[in-house]
Simulated scan of single mutants.
Amino acid sequence: MTEHIVVVGAGYAGLAAAKLAAKWTDSRVTLVNARDRFVERVRLHQLVTGQSLRDLPLADLVKGTGVDLVVDQVTAIDPDARKLQLTDRMLTYDRLIYAVGSHASLDGVPGAAEHAHAVSTLEDAEKLAAALKNTRTVAVTGGGLTGIETAAELAESRPDLDVLLVTDGGFGQALSAKGARHLRKTFDRLGIRVRDHAKVGEVRADGLVLDNGERIAADTVVWTAGFRVPDLAARAGFAVDDHGRMVVDETLTSISHPDVTGIGDAAAIKRPDGLELRMACATGLPTTQQAVRGLAKRLHGEEPDPIGFRYIQQCISLGRRDGLIQFVNTDDSPKERVVTGRAAAFYKELVCRGTIVFERHPTIPAG
C-alpha cells in the first residue's frame, strides 16, 4: 500500500521537503500550509521599507511535482492516531514531516508584545511598514543578523529616519575583527547609532527602558532579539527541548515518534559531534535534503545516513549597495577573511535569489 506523507509548513524547508519526498519516494505527498503564497522571509526587512517582493503562489511552485497542496491551518496533531486537525476537518498520515518554522519571541520582556514590531512573518512586516509611515525615530533591538540587516535597510532606504540599534551583547561580536570594523564603518556611514551591552527591561509605547532604568525614546520599536517556535509539537506530546523545538536524532527523526521527521527552525538539529545548528536557510536547506533522502532510504528498507553539515560563511546585507560576507570555520566561528562592499551585496543578492531557484529545483546541491 502506498504511504501517505504529510508535510506541515511550506517555508524554505517544508516546501523543499514536500517536493523531494514526491520525487524520491513512491508515497502520496500532501503539503499543508496556512497561506497560499510562499514568503521570502530573508527579504522581509526589504518589504518594511516599501520594496516589493515577488508573488510566489504555492500552487505554481508545486505544479507538476505530484504534491497535493492543502491551504489550511493545522491546529493540533494526534500522533497516536496519526491525524492532523485542520480548521474544519481531519487529515490522516502515515509519515509526518514537521516544518512549522519560527517567529519572533515577544514574550520575554514586558511590553514587547503590546508595543514592539517584528519582521519574522509577512504580517509582522506589513504592520511595521504601516507604522513606519508616521515614524521619525526607530529603535531596533537585537544585534544578530536580523537586527543588523533591518537597521541597515531602514537607514539606507529612509534617510529621514533616526535609527538606533540596541543589543545586550557586543556590537558585531560574532564577527572577525575585519568584519566588525566594516560593520561599524557602515553603520557610521548610514548614521545608525549603536548602544551595545544594553539590556532592555521594558518596551513602552514611547520607546525602551533599559535594565538600569535609562529611557530611550523611539516612535517605533523593532524587536529582533530572539525567535521561538509554535507549540504544536509540545501540545501533541512529541519530545521537545526547552524552546519547544522537536528533538530529533542524527537522521532528523523524532526521538519519540519514529514516523515523524523534524526539519528547519522547528527542529533541534545537532551534528554528530554535538554542535547544535542555528536557525537559518544555510542550515535548513541542506539538512532538509539529507533528511528526506534518509526517509526515502528507510521506506526502501535501508538504513539512513546521519546528517553531515559544515559551516562556510555568513552573508549579511547592509542595504542594497553594501554587504558583509564573513567566512567561518566548520563550527561557525569566524575566520579573519571577509568580503565587503558592493561585491558582498551582489553575492548576498545571488544567495537570496538562489533560495528560490532551490525551491523550484530542490535536488540541486544546497551546501
Rank of each mutant, 00 (worst) to 15 (best):
L164S: 07
E123N: 15
A139R: 03
A76F: 09
G172V: 05
K127I: 08
G179V: 03
L86C: 08
G142Q: 07
Q73N: 13
L122G: 06
A152Q: 03
V71I: 12
L96P: 02
M90L: 12
G143Q: 05
D160E: 12
R184F: 05
T137Q: 14
V138T: 13
D124S: 02
V70H: 03
E126S: 09
Q173E: 14
A99D: 04
K83M: 11
A129H: 13
V62K: 07
T167V: 13
A76L: 12
D94Y: 09
G143L: 05
H115I: 10
L175R: 03
D168G: 08
G143C: 08
E123M: 12
T141E: 02
V119F: 02
S120C: 14
A112H: 02
T92K: 06
A81W: 11
L106K: 04
K127Q: 15
V74S: 06
P79E: 05
V74N: 04
S176G: 08
T121I: 05
R95F: 06
T137N: 14
G143K: 02
G179K: 00
A104N: 08
D162E: 14
V67K: 06
T135H: 14
L106V: 11
H115W: 15
R184V: 10
A155T: 06
V140P: 02
T87Y: 12
A180L: 05
Y98C: 03
D80R: 15
R82I: 11
R184K: 15
D72H: 09
T135Y: 15
V140R: 01
D80F: 13
L132P: 02
G111H: 02
S157C: 10
T167H: 09
A116T: 00
A177L: 10
T146K: 00
R158P: 07
T146R: 01
A130T: 09
E123T: 15
A118R: 00
K83Y: 03
H182G: 02
K83E: 08
V163I: 12
P79M: 09
K133P: 10
T121A: 04
H182F: 07
L145C: 08
L165C: 07
G169H: 13
D162C: 11
G111F: 00
R136E: 15
